[in-house]
Design a protein around this nucleic acid. Structure first.
Length: 664
RNA sequence: GCCGAUGUAGCUCAGUGGUAGAGCAGCUGUUUCGUAAACAGCAGGUCACCAGUUCGAAUCUGGUCAUCGGCUCCA
């Protein structure tokens, strides 16, 4: 587990997820390491050391490539300052698959300006500027260097961000500058000095294979309250081939984007007449959902969960009591208000409903744990810039459940949930994920409940992870407002990381709702709640799996498992009969999902299209087969397997494994 | 929400001020075919929407909306 990624870097130096597509140049940028040894993400420490980059895999951080990219960021900054002398530089770190630099421009940069900057970079690279480290005696001297030598004659205001970075460096720590300087043929001097801990390559002529990729806005120090700077993303490699391979991979990744495949495979759609972020599930996508929820449902029944079903709207008072309104008011769809009557809201969470059901009767300690599960559709008014296909939709389905447990049961129940999640992920074939324990950020006031509850809940999560030998990383500030949580994180085709499964230990909602059970001592006690969702969002999970499998879902999940292809019209009836037999599970308890492609097209075309729709098995039926009782079998990955007796073919289909190789 | 980009037929995309184009998909007809695209014809667009500039706007300007890449957020 644990993905190829850095993760504990300073917030200002967060990787660009867009850049983190695995270019896989011999695993050079691959960075696996023990999560437990990683430095926890901590906003406080990020701010204390904004100019250092930690948490990257040591081999990458120490590699030539890492230095090269860092130097490429400097070269870009030099080009920018020559072209736009009033631009104010802030930070420009290397990241997993490249580098960026955050710059405050006087007038907005256009995408076409990138080419200009690239050309200038080439010019400077050709000057073969030596890059040298210049240590400063102390911060005082460093300040002088910044003001005297890095402002392009624009005055102290130009060094605004660099001075703030300098201030954040602890007194006594080494302060260094890197300087690159050369004179061109016309005798003009080009010089660039940047506050930087390095290290760098020795000469700008080493920076040859680079490309500026895109522009983005990025808040100074990652804080919305600060000014938004312009971030220029780029990448650099040691060789031209590696650069081209990376850019090629980027293009390939776009083809497995779930939005592209979702349309091609007929899984889901969006309509402007319905609304942003509100998916419409087409028959094949709905089938996929059914297969997945059916699987989880059965797994949950085995583990003592009970199903419940709750409405899509509720009286707002329910959510005032839970605290959701106070925290998320402006991230909900507009309230349904009526002057005379009560106000209702579209539900953004299922928990208060399940709590109501728990409270509907007096509970004994003998009844606990109570485990209520529901595939609950919720609606959240996500920010317009955040909606991303079905990865982040405004209407989605949680595979939600709430466990009401005694303190003694907490650990076992939590472990049971983690076990379920691992079972689910193994079945879905998802391996490349990481675990994150989101804890309370002491500096924030968005949390409810007493500290002792938070401490107990956090300890319960970490203890359970230890028992399960699950490696995790602690991430302060990533807790839910009512409690800490364990999240499983996974990347999409473009390398962006998403939260999927989640488990939360919650002492606070039981308190707010005054939940009770009668203990052995015949006195009332307060249960603890576990919120959990192994998929997280069914929509997001389907998006991630679509990308992971490039649309070629494992056999058990494929919306269409078998396509029967009659060669000519006269074979259509036999084809239908064969399909019906497969659907009726004549041969097995497993009813197969079968389609007959009886269009008047050539066999080649039928094969091509079913192949493009990633149908696992195609059964070709012609005169010879009907005569001999055989079918021509074609497997999605293995190709034409020739004619075989029907019985053999069925045996093969039913033995098809639940996993699949990735044909993309 | 913020920064940047994009919006032409169902899909992928041409079209830089003078009567809207191609391929695929679709429809109709012919073909009845053995493992990744048969042949022919037809139809399909208020060029996202609303204003403006102009004799004339897909094309220039402004606004709105949606989508895409980031930032921030994600109960």
């Amino acid at each position: 587990m644990c993905a190829r990624q850095q993760r504990t870097q300073d917030q200002e130096q967060r990787q660009n997820p867009h850049q983190s597509l695995d270019p896989a140049p011999e695993g050079k940028v691959s960075c696996r390491y023990n999560l437990r040894q990683s430095v926890p993400r901590n906003r406080g420490s990020r701010k204390a050391h904004p100019h250092c980059l930690r948490g990257l895999n040591m081999s990458y951080e120490q590699s030539y490539l890492y230095k090269l990219r860092h130097s490429a960021a400097h070269l870009m900054a030099q080009a920018v300052t020559e072209l736009y002398p009033s631009a104010k530089l802030s930070i420009g770190p290397p990241i997993e698959n490249g580098f960026y630099y955050d710059i405050d421009f006087e007038s907005p940069l256009k995408e076409e300006d990138l080419e200009k900057i690239e050309n200038k970079m080439r010019e400077l690279s050709n000057l073969k500027e030596p890059i040298v480290c210049r240590p400063a005696k102390d911060k005082e001297e460093a300040k002088k260097v910044i003001l005297d030598e890095t402002t392009n004659g624009q005055g102290p205001e130009n060094a605004l961000y660099k001075l703030q970075l300098l201030e954040a460096i602890p007194d006594g720590d080494a302060v260094t500058f890197y300087e690159q300087r050369a004179t061109d043929k016309q005798g003009k001097e080009h010089a660039f000095i940047d506050l930087c801990r390095g290290p760098h390559v020795e000469n700008t002529s080493e920076i040859k294979n680079f490309k500026l990729l895109n522009l983005a806005g990025a808040y100074w120090r990652g804080d919305v309250k600060n000014k938004q700077l312009t971030r220029i993303y780029g990448t650099a490699f040691e060789t031209k081939d590696e650069l081209e391979a990376y850019l090629h991979n980027l293009e390939e990744a776009k083809k497995r984007d779930h939005r592209v495949l979702g349309r091609e495979l007929g899984l889901f759609m969006f309509s402007p007449r319905v609304g942003t972020g509100l998916p419409l599930w087409l028959p094949k996508g709905a089938t996929l959902r059914h297969v997945m929820t059916d699987f989880l449902q059965k797994e949950q029944v085995k583990r003592g969960y009970e199903p419940v079903v709750t409405p899509h709207i509720a009286n707002i008072k329910l959510y005032e009591k839970s605290g959701h309104i106070q925290t998320y008011r402006d991230k909900m769809f507009p309230f349904m208000e009526d002057e005379e009557k009560e106000t209702y809201i579209l539900k953004p969470m299922n928990c208060p409903f399940h709590i109501e059901i728990y409270q509907s009767q007096l509970r004994s300690y003998r009844d606990l744990p109570v485990r209520y599960a529901e595939f609950g559709t919720v609606h959240r008014y996500e920010q317009s810039g955040e909606v991303t296909g079905i990865l982040r939709a405004r209407g989605f389905t949680q595979d939600d459940a709430h466990l009401f447990v005694t303190p003694e049961q907490l650990q076992d129940e939590f472990i049971g949930v983690v076990d379920l999640m691992q079972t689910v992920l193994a079945k879905l074939g998802l391996k490349d994920f990481r675990a994150r324990v989101g804890t309370k950020d002491p500096g924030s006031d968005k949390y409810v409940g007493h500290d002792e509850n938070w401490v107990a809940a956090t300890k319960a999560i970490m203890d359970a992870c230890d028992v399960m030998k699950l490696e995790y990383e602690v991430s302060p500030g990533d807790a839910a407002f009512y409690g800490p949580k364990l999240d499983l994180m996974i990347k999409d085709a473009l390398g962006r990381e998403w939260q999927m499964g989640t488990v939360q230990v919650d002492y606070n909602l039981p308190e707010r709702f005054e939940l009770e059970y009668i203990g052995e001592d015949s006195k009332p006690h307060r249960p603890i709640m576990i919120h959990r969702a192994p998929f997280g969002s069914l929509e997001r999970m389907i998006a991630l799996m679509t990308e992971q499998y490039a649309g070629a879902f494992p056999f058990w999940l494929a919306p269409v498992q078998v396509a029967v292809l009659p060669i000519a019209d006269r074979h259509n009836e036999s084809a239908q009969q064969l399909a019906d037999r497969l659907r009726d599970s004549v041969y097995d308890t497993r009813a197969l999902r079968v389609e007959v492609d009886d269009r008047r097209e050539t066999l080649g075309k039928k094969i091509r299209e079913n192949q493009r729709h990633k149908v696992p098995f195609m059964l070709v039926l012609g005169d010879r087969d009907i005569e001999a009782g055989t079918v021509g079998v074609r497997h999605r990955e293995r190709g034409d397997l020739g004619a075989m007796p029907l019985a053999d073919c069925l045996k093969m289909i039913l033995e098809e494994p639940d996993t699949t190789s990735d044909p993309a």
